[in-house]
Design a protein around this nucleic acid. Structure first.
Lengths: 332, 332
DNA sequence: CTGAAAGCGCTTACAG
DNA sequence: CTGAAAGCGCTTACAG
C-alpha cells in the first residue's frame, strides 16, 4: 500500500540505511542529506511500518491493562490515565476486561502473554496469591491495588488498611456508634485489607466489632450496595453509619436510604472509597477515600516499562497517596 | 525467547511448513503427523508470533476506537461492547481518546492510520463533514452516531431526530408547556439533529419554539447540565420541563434542581439521552432514550471488518434501534 | 503428502 | 559519512 523505506530512499537518491538513520535520529547524516530525506518522506507521506519494526526489535510497544470492568467509573478513569501515561512513553495500551472473576483473571495470568504484548498491568479481584506464585509465563506483570502477592512482582497500591481506618475514624468522630461495613466479606485482597482497617479503627475507639454489621457480596456494584443496605436496615442490629468499600456500593446504599425515607447523614451516615465523579454529584454528595489516580497510572507504566527493559530489576512496592474527602453524606 | 515454528518442527521431526499447516488447519497433514506436531507445540509451549504473522499478512488484527472520553459512562459501555464484539472476530481494539475536541479528532482522521491499525471506528463530536470529506488516509473508517457525513463512509446511528422528537412528545403528553432543551447549541452533528427533533415535536403540538429555552455548551457533561439548568431558572423565561441531550447533563440538571429545592417532575420534569447506569440510580430515576448499544457495537465491528476485506463495498447506513424509558423524572 | 525458497519492511552490526 | 548483507518469525506459492 503505502511507501516503504526503499521508496523514500529511491526518491531521495540515497540508500535506505540513510533514511533509517534520519528516521531514528542517528548521527552521521549531513544536514543536506537529512533535508532531502525529510522532503521525500513528506512527499510520499511515508510512515514506518510498526509491525516490521516490532518484529525486528522483538518488542511490540503494547501494554495490556487487565481490569474487572471498563464500565466501572473507577476503572474507566484508571484506564484513561494509564492510556495517557503510556502515550507519553510511546506505548499503546490494550484493555482486557476480566469481569473480576477467577476465570477471566486466569486468562490474564496464563493466556495474555504473546509476542503481541510487552507487559501487563493487572488489577486483580479474584486471584489468590497462590495463582500468581504458580504463574509460569515470562511476560512482565505489575500488580495494582494489591499487597500480599508473591515477591518478584512489582506492586502499586493505596495503603488500604490505613485508608479504611481513617474513614472509619472519621465516622466515629461524627458521633456514630453502630458503623457497618459493606464489602467486608472478602478473605483476601483489597476487601480483606479494608476490613482490617475498619476493625482497627473500631477497636482503637473502644467500639465492639459486630459481625452482624459486616455484610456485602463479592461484586462491588450499586445493586450489592442497595441490597446490603436494605439487609442492614431490616436486621435488628441497628445501624447509624455505613462504610462501603467502594463508591458504587455507597451510591446503591444511598438509593435504599432514600427509598426508605431516611436522612443522610442524620439517621445514617455513608462513606465510600474511590472518589468517582458520580459521588461528587449524588444526593447527598459522598464522603470517600480519594486515591491519586494519575500518580498510580504514571507509576504503573513506569514500572512495567522498566521491567520490560530490566527483567531482573528488584521488585518495587509503591504506595499511592490518598486523601479522605469529607462531603455531605457524613457532614450534614 | 520462546519457541519458534522451527523449534516445533525440529522437535516433531517434520518441516516447519507442516507445522504451519497444522496451526492454520490446512489439509494435507496425516492424523499421526498432526498429533506429533500438537504434542511438540504443547511441550515447547509454542505460541505463534503475531507480529511476524501481521507483517506477512499485511494486517494487524487491530481496530482503533476513537471516542471523546472513556470516563463518560456512555462511551465506556460502548468501548466495552465493541471490545467484546471485536474479540468474537479475533480482533483487538485500541482505544483513542479525542476529548471530543477538534484537534484530537483531526488526529483520528489524519494521524491514526498506520500499518498498526486495520480500521477505525470513530465517534466524532467536533468534526465538520468537510474535514471527513477532505480526508486522504486510506485506513477504513466507520462513523458512529452521525449522519450527514460524506458518502463512501459507513454510518451507524440512532435516528436522532426521531428519538428526540419522541422524548419531547412524551414531555408534552405529561402536560408540560415550557420545555427547554439543553445541548441544542450545536450547528451540526448529533446536537443539531436532536435539536431538530425537539423543534418538530413542539411545532406538531402547536407550542412555540423559544430560542431562550435552548441553551447549553459544547461539552456534554454534568457541569454543563447543572449550569444550564441554573441559567434557565434564573432567566425570566419560565420553564416546566427540560430535555437534556445526554444523561450526564440531565444528572447535572437534577443536581441544580435539588439545590434549589424544586420538585421533579412536579415543578420541572427532566429527560435525558443515552440510558447510562447512573440514571437508573439517580434521585429521581431518569427518563431517557435507550439505544441498543450491543447492536451498535456488533454492527460497527462488522462494518469495519467488511471494509477491511472489501475496501470498495457500497457504504451502509445502519439505524440503531432505541426505546424511550419513562422513569420517575417525568412520571412522578 | 512434505520440502526449499522467497519475501513481508524494517534495523543492526559490519565494511568501506 | 554511506552501502550491502543478514535476519526478526512467519506464510505463500511452487516443486517434488
Amino acid at each position: 500500500m503505502g511507501a516503504r523505506l526503499k521508496d523514500v530512499a529511491d526518491r531521495a537518491g540515497v540508500s535506505f540505511k540513510t533514511v533509517s538513520n534520519v528516521i531514528n535520529n542517528h548521527p552521521n547524516v549531513t544536514e543536506k542529506t537529512r533535508e532531502k530525506v525529510l522532503e521525500a518522506i513528506a512527499e510520499l507521506r511515508y510512515r514506518p511500518n510498526m509491525t516490521a519494526r516490532s518484529l525486528r526489535h522483538g518488542r511490540s510497544g503494547f501494554l495490556a491493562l487487565a481490569v474487572p470492568e471498563l464500565t466501572s467509573p473507577y476503572f474507566a478513569s484508571l484506564a484513561s490515565e494509564i492510556g495517557a501515561a503510556a502515550k507519553r512513553r510511546g506505548l499503546v495500551v490494550l484493555i482486557e476486561e476480566t469481569s473480576g472473576e477467577h476465570e477471566g483473571e486466569r486468562v490474564v495470568l496464563e493466556g495474555l502473554s504473546s509476542t503481541l504484548i510487552d507487559g501487563i498491568i493487572f488489577s486483580p479481584m479474584a486471584t489468590p496469591a497462590a495463582d500468581v506464585a504458580a504463574r509460569t509465563e515470562p511476560t512482565p506483570m505489575v500488580l495494582l491495588g494489591e499487597r500480599g502477592y508473591p515477591a518478584g512482582y512489582d506492586h502499586i497500591a493505596v495503603d488500604n488498611v490505613r485508608a479504611a481506618r481513617q474513614v472509619t475514624q472519621h465516622l466515629i468522630e461524627t458521633g456514630k456508634k453502630r458503623i457497618a461495613a459493606i464489602g467486608a466479606e472478602h478473605e483476601s485482597g483489597t476487601g480483606a485489607l479494608r476490613g482490617q482497617g475498619y476493625r482497627q479503627a473500631l477497636e482503637a475507639a473502644g467500639h465492639r466489632v459486630d459481625p452482624a454489621l459486616m455484610v456485602g457480596d463479592v461484586n462491588y456494584d450499586r445493586t450489592t450496595g442497595a441490597r446490603a443496605m436494605a439487609a442492614l436496615l431490616d436486621a435488628p442490629a441497628g445501624v447509624d453509619a455505613v462504610f462501603c468499600f467502594n463508591d458504587l456500593m455507597a451510591l446503591g446504599a444511598l438509593r435504599t436510604l432514600r427509598e426508605r425515607g431516611l436522612r443522610v447523614p442524620q439517621d445514617i451516615a455513608v462513606a465510600g472509597f474511590d472518589d468517582i465523579e458520580d459521588g461528587r454529584y449524588s444526593a447527598p454528595t459522598l464522603t470517600t477515600v480519594s486515591p491519586d489516580v494519575p500518580f498510580l497510572a504514571e507509576e504503573a507504566v513506569r514500572l512495567v516499562a522498566r521491567r520490560v527493559s530490566e527483567p531482573d530489576a528488584a521488585a518495587e512496592d509503591v504506595e499511592v497517596p490518598f486523601t479522605v474527602e469529607v462531603r455531605e453524606s457524613t457532614a450534614g
